[in-house]
């Protein structure tokens, strides 16, 4: 699917809409988010004042867990340890850092390039380690997206905000004054229209 199939900035202020569009493009490019957003619709009315940002997301790969690239087993019989046998070395550095953080450096041993021994209670920890999240590309992208929208795109004075964020969509309503229900309804409508375009 193409990136940014819809990219509309609506505003009664035509010049403002044009510059806001350039501004959003710049921000998304700066934070390498152009590939993440599928459809985007923004409405700004400085007189009311309200800023609505809605987008459909296309997030990449889900979180990487330890079981995805390693075999996790009991260690030597009679000892309190878990043996991790790596199949791919790509995540070793990240994995070691996370293990050190969780169990302490003194409890981690690496006798071989592809074997890591964790000194802990295997019965309790085995399943936890299998589901241990090493990398969260989606979460990282969402963090960047919040940075882009909340901290860079929405005008700074618009301090009253309502947001919705999921792996499929993002919705922000911001204003200088108390939010009106019709603005939130309009935001939902905009999101719906994006969805119907997507499904058409």
């Amino acid at each position: 699917m193409e990136q940014l199939e819809t990219f509309v900035v609506e505003s009664p202020d035509i010049v403002g809409a044009k510059t806001t569009k350039v501004l959003i493009q710049d921000t998304l490019a700066d934070l390498s988010l152009t590939r993440v957003i599928g459809r985007l619709k923004v409405f700004v009315d400085p007189v009311q004042p309200v800023f609505i940002f809605t987008a459909l997301l296309r997030l990449g790969t889900p979180a990487v867990k330890l079981k995805d690239f390693a075999n996790i087993d009991m260690g030597t019989l009679g000892k309190d340890e878990v043996k991790i046998e790596l199949q791919r070395e790509a995540f070793t550095v990240k994995l070691l850092n996370k293990l050190w953080e969780k169990y302490g450096k003194e409890n981690i041993e690496q006798p071989d390039k592809k074997i890591i021994i964790v000194k802990t209670d295997p019965i309790k920890e085995l399943d936890i380690l299998r589901e241990f999240v090493i990398e969260e590309p989606q979460q990282e992208v969402l963090d960047r997206l919040i940075d882009a929208v909340a901290l860079r795109i929405i005008p700074e004075g618009f301090r009253v905000r309502k947001h919705e964020l999921s792996t499929s969509h993002v919705l922000f309503v911001a204003s200088e004054d108390t939010l009106k229900p019709e603005w939130i309804a309009k935001a939902k409508d905009m999101l719906e229209s994006l969805r119907s375009e997507e499904n058409a």
Binding site: V15, L23, P49
Partner: peptide
């Protein structure tokens, strides 16, 4: 004074 995008603002 370096201000923004919208006439009204």
């Amino acid at each position: 004074f370096i201000l923004g995008n919208y006439e009204h603002c």
